[in-house]
Design a binder for these strands. Structure first.
Length: 112
DNA sequence: ACTATGACGGTTG
DNA sequence: CCAACCGCCATAG
């Protein structure tokens, strides 16, 4: 809403829109928002999600390589991996297995 | 107002 | 194919 945080809300919106057992990439979200080159901002939004007013499945958001780059931001442990495996996603060494299978593109699925 | 940084992506070498 | 650099938009200091 008419404020700079709108960008963040979009990120969280899409993050929550990610189906259970699916993951998306920063670039996909950024592109869906309109800032295709703002992938870094998406990650930044996730960083502040720790103090956000609602839960954000940031564990479903990874980089284009399917690598859990931000897993250390959750609990500094293996929380992210546990969550992903809990959804049926295989994760080994912070790397998502069958990444392209579980990949969920908002711009494609939502067709915006 | 300006500078520096940030959980990345794309392009160039 | 792999490695490195630049660019990006927004937030914080």
């Amino acid at each position: 809403m008419a404020k700079s945080s709108d960008f963040f809300e979009r990120v969280y919106q899409v993050a929550e829109l990610v189906p259970h057992g699916r993951v998306t990439s920063y670039g996909a979200i950024a592109r869906y928002i309109g800032s295709a080159r703002g992938a870094r901002m998406v990650g930044w939004a996730m960083n502040k999600c720790s103090g956000w007013h609602r839960f954000v499945p940031a564990h479903r958001v990874v980089n284009s390589k399917g690598l859990l780059t931000g897993k250390h931001h959750f609990s500094g442990g293996e929380t992210m991996k546990e969550l992903l495996q809990n959804e049926g996603i295989e994760v080994v060494e912070n790397q998502i297995i069958n990444f392209e299978k579980v990949f969920w593109d908002p711009t494609k699925e939502l067709e915006i």
